[in-house]
Design a protein around this nucleic acid. Structure first.
Lengths: 119, 119
DNA sequence: CTTCCATATGAATACATGGTCATATTTATC
DNA sequence: GATAAATATGACCATGTATTCATATGGAAG
């Protein structure tokens, strides 16, 4: 029977909250950004992207380089394709994958740099 | 009874594979890098970090800004603490969180930049 | 020392996700 | 056209993870 509609949080600093809220980026944008980071947040995908930054490669070469199954690589390549990070061209039965743009490279480089600096 | 030890993959371009393998970064490093990216790959954490880049905030202010439960925020702050992305100081009962370094800021900025350019 | 409030934390749940296995698809070669 | 090779894909499973709920902790104030 108690009045539960009142917010349980009491300590909120109204002014701070308002200020920061006004400075926040749009929810949707931040969601997309985190979604993009997520792609780099898997070591298999990261390895694929790094390998492709050195040379265009076909699926089975990637599988050999990463020492993983063709299927696993193919699945991840699909993810990367969907997110427009890689493209591919067909040559006979082979599919040669390559990076869609070099944002990818600078992103990885920054990640590596920051990681190294923390050690 | 067949000889199964031979790799089923036939198409591998030995030279390519060797070349790229030699150019690959160490597995362990790439794993750490992807692990770091993973932190930015969640919109709640990203919002927390972005908010903290504007001003030090206590837990309940963060909860108010993100419009999420105190518990959810606290759990994510723990993750960020563990990964050394945020620190905090105690003032009375309150805990004021702040960014541990400004790598975080440049990382987010790059992410936002790349995301915007893709639209 | 008791109560209140801000925060932390453990358990439980719901959902996403990476890999495997089996199989489909497509192209080249015989 | 039949077979083989390279890749793609769907179903499935195991694991990871973000949130909620209930509760613990610790400082402040009475």
């Amino acid at each position: 029977m108690e009045e539960k509609d009142t917010c349980e949080i009491v300590c909120v600093h109204e002014d701070n909250v308002k200020e920061i809220k006004s400075k926040m980026l749009e929810d949707e944008l931040l969601f997309e950004v985190s979604d993009n980071f997520k792609i780099f947040g898997d070591s298999t995908r990261l390895k694929i992207l790094y390998a492709l930054s050195k040379k265009d490669l076909c699926v089975c070469d990637l599988a050999a380089v990463l020492d993983m199954s063709q299927s696993a690589i193919s699945h991840q390549l699909r993810v990367l394709r969907t997110k427009n990070l890689v493209k591919f061209r067909k040559e006979g039965k082979m599919a040669y994958y390559f990076l869609a743009d070099d944002h990818v490279v600078s992103m990885i480089e920054l990640g590596v740099e920051h990681t190294k600096e923390k050690l």
